[in-house]
Design a protein around this nucleic acid. Structure first.
Length: 426
RNA sequence: GUGGCCGUAGCUCAAUUGGUUAGAGCACCGGACUGUGGCUCCGGGGGUUGUGGGUUCAAUUCCCAUCGGUCACCCCA
């Protein structure tokens, strides 16, 4: 956080911008590998684009105001509504499934915390028009490959997956009614954070019997054990749902990312939103917030007034990811360096350096030289400090007009070259 | 929005129960090494101690408020 910037907003100095660009580069690279194409929309949208989806309460959590034309508008807190609108407008004309990604800057009016600012960039990858579970596998594999492209391994990051339909069937199997579902989900979500007794109390308040509550906890705990899991599935008559998840895991195996994935029914995410498989990526040590979250939202496009198409997607923010990369030493140090530094000796002036710089720049290389008038020793010091890959010295008494001495970074030897030839090859 | 902890130079930190003009290292700028760079030496700029009040002869130090940071709650699109 930079003092001076609004709370929760960041100034990107060159070092930070280099890190951001590095992250963006990895994101675009992986999205491209999976055949996704990039889009963008306006950062400012009508307020009701968000209230329509999330209700009026959402207004507390976003930047909204009335513009000079009297329109109620908001800085976008998420990309999905914009995405839905854009897809809906051309749904009929597009080849399905649609694979789009975007790197929007998103805003939310909340108190900032570690990993959660008022502004961030988020990789959004979405697939529209494919109901088959293979699409779910493709999407998660892409999210995991993003981890890989940054040098992270399955030791560093774990993907926890669940399936809304399977969970609903299992919950129904142990006697949870549809009215009690929200309470059951809330309890699952809080499993790691709140003590068991507190959760039991809340479940009881929602009308769940002591026995049902106990089975609920068993359900969440059985995730690692396939045998016990199968029993629960059989008991609930959720075989079809289980088969879907099994097939999902098989696909992930084929895509080469099965090691990263763990079934975990305590993954909840937005209740009104997701309809099928959901997932989250966490750092394996559990020190940070979720790196990424997403899943299938087959009914959302239609409910937003668009077309009826199955869809799925995820969002991955730059803040937590950046922290993870720094903590794990995976963030490359930025080395802003010019290609060539032109220094001149006593036989010349800054204008000689200028003439050479102009020619080398015309060749497409980045060039810097000492502005003003400086002694050669100082110029060379500056060249070193700038991290110049090559330093060219011209106009010293021992050099003729068309000669220069060249030294590469980190090399001791200095070569005498013909200036014209050297520039031509630069 | 609620609560806990924390705010001294760009960064990391000092400043003896409250006591002269708030210091150091790194970084930055300049000088020396008589002109081919990383070393060394010397010097310099930079702070209304987050801000505003209060207590006191005297506040970086104690009290209150406020702003900011951080953690948790809420929420997670």
């Amino acid at each position: 956080m930079s003092p001076g910037a609004l709370p929760g907003f960041r100034d990107f100095y060159p070092t930070e911008l280099a890190e951001r660009s590095y992250i963006f580069g990895g994101w675009r690279d992986v999205a491209r590998r999976y055949g996704f194409v990039e889009y963008d929309g306006p950062p400012l949208e009508p307020l009701d684009l968000y209230t329509k989806k999330s209700g009026a309460e959402i207004v507390d959590q976003l930047y909204n105001f009335t513009d000079k034309g009297g329109r109620e508008i908001a800085l976008r807190p998420e990309m999905t509504p914009t995405f839905a609108r854009m897809v809906a407008a051309r749904a009929n004309a597009m080849r399905k499934p649609v694979r789009w990604f975007s790197l929007p800057q998103l805003f939310r009016y909340e108190r900032a915390q570690r990993g959660r600012l008022r502004e961030h960039f988020q990789l959004n990858m979405d697939i529209v028009g494919e109901a088959d579970v293979s699409a779910d596998a493709e999407l998660l594999a892409a999210a995991i490959d993003v981890m890989r492209v940054f040098g992270l391994t399955s030791e560093d990051v774990v993907a926890r997956v669940s399936d809304r339909r399977l969970l609903n069937a299992l919950l129904a199997g142990i006697g949870v009614t549809s009215e009690q579902l929200p309470a059951a989900y809330a309890a699952l979500d809080k499993l790691d954070r709140d003590p068991r007794e507190v959760l039991e109390q809340r479940l009881a308040a929602a009308g769940l019997s002591v026995q049902t509550a106990a089975q609920l906890f068993e359900l969440a705990g059985a995730t690692a054990d396939e045998a016990a899991f199968s029993q629960l599935v059989d008991a609930a008559g959720a075989t079809a749902e289980w088969e879907t998840l099994r097939s999902y895991l098989d696909h992930l195996e084929s895509l080469g990312v099965r090691d990263w994935v763990r079934v975990d029914l305590s993954i909840v995410r937005g209740l009104a939103y997701y309809t099928g498989i959901v997932f989250e990526l966490f750092d394996a040590k559990g020190e940070l917030r979720a790196i990424c979250g997403g899943g299938r939202y087959d009914t959302l496009l239609e409910s937003l007034g668009g077309v009826s198409l199955p869809a799925l997607g995820f969002g991955m923010g730059d803040v937590v990811l950046g922290e993870l990369l720094r903590v794990r030493g995976k963030m490359p140090a930025s080395e802003p360096a010019v290609d060539v530094w032109v220094a001149y000796g006593d036989s010349g002036t800054v204008e000689d350096a200028m003439r050479v710089a102009a020619k080398v720049r015309a060749r497409g290389r980045s060039v810097e030289y000492a502005l003003g008038s400086q002694k050669l020793a100082r110029q060379l010091k500056a060249a070193y400090a700038a991290g110049a890959k090559q330093t060219l010295v011209i106009a010293t008494p021992e050099l003729s007009a068309n000669e220069a001495m060249v030294r590469r970074k980190d090399e001791k030897v200095e070569l005498r070259v013909q200036l014209d030839e050297w520039i031509a090859g630069a």
